[in-house]
């Protein structure tokens, strides 16, 4: 079981979280024109890298905040977690 550091609640067991996928996918702005290619990329296309992956988790059994987690998809090592408003580099 992963051990995830919620930026609000501290280190908590994975079972308190639910996964939310690639955090680097940016939704096109609301009320702005978007090409269908860009839109399809947003809805369907994923890099799904082997290695460092910035992803979303929601602390559903805790503060209910969505958070960002930078994790290695091959080893599951977590390098960094952050609030969604913060950047992970």
């Amino acid at each position: 079981m992963l051990y995830i550091k919620c930026p609000y609640c501290g280190l908590r067991a994975q079972k308190e979280f639910s996964y939310g996928g690639d955090a680097t996918v940016k939704r096109p702005n609301i009320n702005e024109e978007v090409s269908s290619e860009d839109w399809d990329n947003f809805v369907y296309m994923r890099k799904s890298p082997r290695g460092k992956h910035i992803e979303l988790w929601q602390h559903i059994a805790g503060c209910r905040q969505w958070i960002k987690v930078q994790r290695d998809t091959a080893t599951h090592e977590i390098f960094q977690t952050a609030k969604v408003t913060e950047e992970i580099r």
């Binding site: 639910s18 939310g20 939704r27 609301i30 979303l56 929601q58 559903i60 209910r64 905040q65 969505w66 969604v84 408003t85």
Partner: peptide, 13 residues
């Protein structure tokens, strides 16, 4: 609820 929270917290903070 998770869907709403996603948009409120991430997409349209």
């Amino acid at each position: 609820l998770s869907h709403l929270e996603y948009y409120l917290q991430i997409v349209w903070p």
